[in-house]
Protein backbone atom coordinates (compact mmCIF):
# COMPACT_ATOMS: atom_id res chain seq x y z
CA UNK A 1 0.00 0.00 0.00
CA UNK A 2 1.00 3.59 -0.46
CA UNK A 3 0.05 6.65 1.52
CA UNK A 4 0.52 10.38 1.60
CA UNK A 5 1.11 11.23 5.21
CA UNK A 6 0.88 14.81 6.38
CA UNK A 7 2.64 14.99 9.72
CA UNK A 8 2.78 17.78 12.26
CA UNK A 9 6.40 18.88 12.66
CA UNK A 10 7.37 21.19 15.49
CA UNK A 11 10.86 21.42 16.92
CA UNK A 12 9.85 22.61 20.36
CA UNK A 13 7.54 24.83 22.34
CA UNK A 14 9.00 27.96 20.70
CA UNK A 15 8.34 26.76 17.19
CA UNK A 16 4.92 27.39 15.63
CA UNK A 17 4.86 24.06 13.84
CA UNK A 18 3.48 23.01 10.47
CA UNK A 19 2.18 20.04 8.55
CA UNK A 20 4.76 18.41 6.32
CA UNK A 21 3.85 15.96 3.61
CA UNK A 22 5.64 12.65 3.05
CA UNK A 23 4.97 9.78 0.68
CA UNK A 24 5.26 6.37 2.27
CA UNK A 25 5.14 3.38 -0.04
CA UNK A 26 5.63 -0.36 0.44
CA UNK A 27 3.34 -0.35 3.42
CA UNK A 28 2.02 -3.74 4.45
CA UNK A 29 -1.57 -3.95 5.65
CA UNK A 30 -0.26 -5.94 8.63
CA UNK A 31 1.81 -3.01 9.85
CA UNK A 32 0.61 -1.10 12.82
CA UNK A 33 0.28 2.64 12.39
CA UNK A 34 3.40 3.15 14.47
CA UNK A 35 5.31 0.62 12.37
CA UNK A 36 4.36 2.65 9.33
CA UNK A 37 5.89 5.68 11.05
CA UNK A 38 8.95 3.55 11.91
CA UNK A 39 9.38 2.87 8.21
CA UNK A 40 9.04 6.57 7.43
CA UNK A 41 11.60 7.38 10.11
CA UNK A 42 14.12 4.84 8.84
CA UNK A 43 13.90 6.43 5.42
CA UNK A 44 14.15 9.97 6.77
CA UNK A 45 17.20 8.99 8.78
CA UNK A 46 18.96 7.55 5.75
CA UNK A 47 18.07 10.67 3.76
CA UNK A 48 19.75 12.72 6.48
CA UNK A 49 16.52 14.25 7.75
CA UNK A 50 15.28 14.21 11.30
CA UNK A 51 12.80 11.47 12.05
CA UNK A 52 9.34 12.23 13.37
CA UNK A 53 9.16 12.12 17.16
CA UNK A 54 6.18 10.25 18.58
CA UNK A 55 5.49 8.65 21.94
CA UNK A 56 5.04 4.92 22.34
CA UNK A 57 6.26 2.17 24.60
CA UNK A 58 4.28 -1.03 25.11
CA UNK A 59 2.83 -1.12 21.61
CA UNK A 60 0.09 -3.32 22.86
CA UNK A 61 -2.53 -0.83 23.93
CA UNK A 62 -1.97 -0.72 27.65
CA UNK A 63 0.69 1.81 28.64
CA UNK A 64 -1.19 4.80 27.27
CA UNK A 65 2.00 6.31 25.91
CA UNK A 66 1.02 6.48 22.26
CA UNK A 67 -1.65 8.82 21.03
CA UNK A 68 -1.94 10.58 17.73
CA UNK A 69 -4.79 12.50 16.21
CA UNK A 70 -5.31 10.79 12.89
CA UNK A 71 -7.52 12.63 10.41
CA UNK A 72 -8.89 14.64 13.28
CA UNK A 73 -9.80 11.64 15.42
CA UNK A 74 -7.88 10.80 18.57
CA UNK A 75 -6.28 7.35 18.11
CA UNK A 76 -7.62 7.15 14.57
CA UNK A 77 -10.62 5.63 12.87
CA UNK A 78 -11.04 2.34 14.69
CA UNK A 79 -13.11 2.55 17.85
CA UNK A 80 -11.76 1.36 21.17
CA UNK A 81 -8.26 1.03 19.71
CA UNK A 82 -5.05 2.80 20.64
CA UNK A 83 -2.82 4.15 17.90
CA UNK A 84 -0.30 1.39 18.44
CA UNK A 85 -2.99 -1.23 17.87
CA UNK A 86 -4.36 0.44 14.79
CA UNK A 87 -3.29 -1.38 11.66
CA UNK A 88 -2.83 -0.06 8.17
CA UNK A 89 -5.48 -2.44 6.88
CA UNK A 90 -7.98 0.06 8.31
CA UNK A 91 -6.98 2.53 5.59
CA UNK A 92 -7.46 2.49 1.86
CA UNK A 93 -4.49 2.33 -0.46
CA UNK A 94 -3.61 5.81 -1.68
CA UNK A 95 -5.22 7.64 1.24
CA UNK A 96 -3.92 10.93 2.53
CA UNK A 97 -3.55 10.72 6.30
CA UNK A 98 -3.17 13.77 8.53
CA UNK A 99 -1.33 13.13 11.79
CA UNK A 100 -1.36 15.69 14.59
CA UNK A 101 -0.48 15.70 18.28
CA UNK A 102 -3.05 15.88 21.06
CA UNK A 103 -4.06 19.51 21.30
CA UNK A 104 -4.85 21.01 24.68
CA UNK A 105 -3.25 23.78 26.67
CA UNK A 106 -2.38 21.48 29.60
CA UNK A 107 -0.62 19.19 27.05
CA UNK A 108 2.12 21.38 25.58
CA UNK A 109 3.87 19.97 22.53
CA UNK A 110 7.36 18.75 23.34
CA UNK A 111 8.33 17.93 19.80
CA UNK A 112 6.45 16.90 16.66
CA UNK A 113 3.77 14.52 17.89
CA UNK A 114 5.00 14.26 21.46
CA UNK A 115 3.12 16.15 24.15
CA UNK A 116 3.59 16.48 27.90
CA UNK A 117 0.69 14.87 29.76
CA UNK A 118 2.05 15.55 33.23
CA UNK A 119 -1.17 17.40 34.06
CA UNK A 120 -2.96 14.06 34.31
CA UNK A 121 -0.49 12.95 36.98
CA UNK A 122 -1.24 16.15 38.87
CA UNK A 123 -4.90 15.27 38.95
CA UNK A 124 -4.17 11.84 40.41
CA UNK A 125 -1.82 13.33 42.99
CA UNK A 126 -4.68 15.41 44.31
CA UNK A 127 -6.43 12.35 45.64
CA UNK A 128 -6.61 9.50 43.15
CA UNK A 129 -5.54 6.91 45.70
CA UNK A 130 -6.49 5.15 48.89
CA UNK A 131 -4.39 6.38 51.79
CA UNK A 132 -3.04 3.08 52.99
CA UNK A 133 0.63 2.81 53.84
CA UNK A 134 2.56 -0.36 53.25
CA UNK A 135 2.09 -2.93 55.96
CA UNK A 136 -1.08 -1.49 57.42
CA UNK A 137 -3.49 -3.49 55.29
CA UNK A 138 -6.03 -5.86 56.84
CA UNK A 139 -6.42 -9.41 55.58
CA UNK A 140 -7.72 -9.27 52.02
CA UNK A 141 -10.85 -11.27 52.79
CA UNK A 142 -11.82 -9.10 55.73
CA UNK A 143 -14.00 -7.00 53.45
CA UNK A 144 -16.02 -8.82 50.81
CA UNK A 145 -16.88 -6.75 47.77
CA UNK A 146 -19.98 -7.45 45.74
CA UNK A 147 -18.94 -8.80 42.41
CA UNK A 148 -20.93 -6.17 40.55
CA UNK A 149 -19.03 -3.44 42.38
CA UNK A 150 -15.71 -5.10 41.71
CA UNK A 151 -16.56 -5.44 38.02
CA UNK A 152 -17.73 -1.86 37.77
CA UNK A 153 -14.64 -0.63 39.58
CA UNK A 154 -12.50 -2.61 37.19
CA UNK A 155 -14.24 -1.17 34.17
CA UNK A 156 -13.38 2.34 35.32
CA UNK A 157 -9.93 1.36 36.52
CA UNK A 158 -9.09 0.19 33.00
CA UNK A 159 -8.29 3.78 31.95
CA UNK A 160 -4.78 3.90 30.52
CA UNK A 161 -4.28 7.63 31.01
CA UNK A 162 -3.66 8.22 27.33
CA UNK A 163 -5.40 11.59 27.25
CA UNK A 164 -7.41 10.88 24.10
CA UNK A 165 -10.50 12.09 25.93
CA UNK A 166 -8.89 15.48 26.40
CA UNK A 167 -7.69 15.55 22.82
CA UNK A 168 -11.19 14.91 21.53
CA UNK A 169 -13.22 17.04 23.93
CA UNK A 170 -14.21 20.34 22.34
CA UNK A 171 -13.78 21.90 25.77
CA UNK A 172 -10.37 20.33 26.36
CA UNK A 173 -11.80 18.72 29.46
CA UNK A 174 -10.24 15.76 31.28
CA UNK A 175 -13.47 14.86 32.98
CA UNK A 176 -13.62 11.32 31.64
CA UNK A 177 -10.14 10.55 32.90
CA UNK A 178 -10.82 12.11 36.28
CA UNK A 179 -14.25 10.57 36.59
CA UNK A 180 -12.88 7.11 35.79
CA UNK A 181 -10.52 7.27 38.76
CA UNK A 182 -13.15 8.68 41.09
CA UNK A 183 -15.61 6.01 40.04
CA UNK A 184 -13.07 3.21 40.33
CA UNK A 185 -12.14 4.03 43.89
CA UNK A 186 -15.58 5.22 44.95
CA UNK A 187 -17.16 1.93 43.99
CA UNK A 188 -15.01 -0.08 46.38
CA UNK A 189 -15.41 -0.13 50.15
CA UNK A 190 -11.67 0.48 50.42
CA UNK A 191 -12.07 3.82 48.67
CA UNK A 192 -15.21 4.91 50.50
CA UNK A 193 -13.72 6.84 53.44
CA UNK A 194 -12.03 9.35 51.13
CA UNK A 195 -14.82 9.52 48.60
CA UNK A 196 -15.91 13.07 49.34
CA UNK A 197 -12.52 14.69 49.60
CA UNK A 198 -11.26 12.76 46.61
CA UNK A 199 -14.02 14.03 44.34
CA UNK A 200 -13.61 17.65 45.40
CA UNK A 201 -9.83 17.63 45.37
CA UNK A 202 -9.52 15.94 42.03
CA UNK A 203 -12.03 18.31 40.46
CA UNK A 204 -10.13 21.28 41.86
CA UNK A 205 -6.84 19.90 40.53
CA UNK A 206 -8.45 19.22 37.19
CA UNK A 207 -9.61 22.83 36.86
CA UNK A 208 -6.34 24.13 38.25
CA UNK A 209 -4.39 22.25 35.59
CA UNK A 210 -6.19 24.24 32.92
CA UNK A 211 -8.56 21.60 31.57
CA UNK A 212 -11.91 22.89 30.36
CA UNK A 213 -15.27 22.15 31.92
CA UNK A 214 -17.42 19.27 30.79
CA UNK A 215 -20.66 20.04 28.98
CA UNK A 216 -21.47 16.38 28.41
CA UNK A 217 -20.54 16.51 24.76
CA UNK A 218 -19.62 12.85 24.68
CA UNK A 219 -16.75 13.08 22.21
CA UNK A 220 -14.42 11.70 24.85
CA UNK A 221 -16.08 8.36 25.33
CA UNK A 222 -16.32 7.91 21.58
CA UNK A 223 -12.53 7.88 21.25
CA UNK A 224 -11.63 6.29 24.58
CA UNK A 225 -9.65 3.15 23.80
CA UNK A 226 -10.86 1.48 26.97
CA UNK A 227 -14.51 2.34 26.61
CA UNK A 228 -14.77 4.32 29.83
CA UNK A 229 -18.50 5.13 29.91
CA UNK A 230 -19.99 8.59 30.09
CA UNK A 231 -21.93 7.40 33.13
CA UNK A 232 -18.70 7.81 35.09
CA UNK A 233 -18.93 11.55 34.57
CA UNK A 234 -22.49 11.57 35.91
CA UNK A 235 -21.27 9.54 38.86
CA UNK A 236 -18.46 12.00 39.41
CA UNK A 237 -20.88 14.95 39.29
CA UNK A 238 -23.06 13.18 41.79
CA UNK A 239 -20.11 12.59 44.10
CA UNK A 240 -19.07 16.22 43.85
CA UNK A 241 -22.58 17.45 44.49
CA UNK A 242 -23.08 15.17 47.42
CA UNK A 243 -19.72 16.09 48.90
CA UNK A 244 -20.52 19.80 48.55
CA UNK A 245 -23.97 19.39 50.07
CA UNK A 246 -22.49 17.54 52.98
CA UNK A 247 -20.12 20.41 53.39
CA UNK A 248 -17.09 18.20 52.99
CA UNK A 249 -14.13 20.43 52.36
CA UNK A 250 -11.14 19.31 50.36
CA UNK A 251 -8.23 17.78 52.15
CA UNK A 252 -6.17 20.42 53.94
CA UNK A 253 -3.14 21.16 51.79
Amino acid sequence: MRFTVRVWRQTGSEDAGRLVEYDVDDVSPDMSFLEMLDVLNERLTLRGEEPVAFDHDCREGICGMCGLTINGVAHGPRRATTTCQLHMREFTDGDTIVVEPWRAAPFPVVRDLVVDRGALDEVVRAGGYVSVSTGSAPEAHATPVARADADKAFESAACIGCGACVAACPNGSAMLFTAAKVTHLGRLPQGAPERDTRALDMLAAHDEAGFGGCTNTGECTAVCPKGIPLADIAQFNQDVLRASLRGAGGRPA
Binding site: V132, A137, T143, P144
Partner: peptide, 13 residues
Protein backbone atom coordinates in the same frame (compact mmCIF):
# COMPACT_ATOMS: atom_id res chain seq x y z
CA UNK B 1 -2.47 -9.35 48.18
CA UNK B 2 -3.67 -7.69 51.39
CA UNK B 3 -1.80 -4.52 50.52
CA UNK B 4 -3.08 -4.35 46.97
CA UNK B 5 -6.68 -5.01 47.94
CA UNK B 6 -6.50 -2.24 50.53
CA UNK B 7 -5.22 0.11 47.81
CA UNK B 8 -8.30 -0.58 45.76
CA UNK B 9 -6.87 -2.96 43.17
CA UNK B 10 -10.02 -4.43 41.58
CA UNK B 11 -9.10 -8.10 41.57
CA UNK B 12 -11.58 -10.55 40.11
CA UNK B 13 -14.12 -11.70 42.68
Amino acid sequence: IDQCVAQGVPFAR
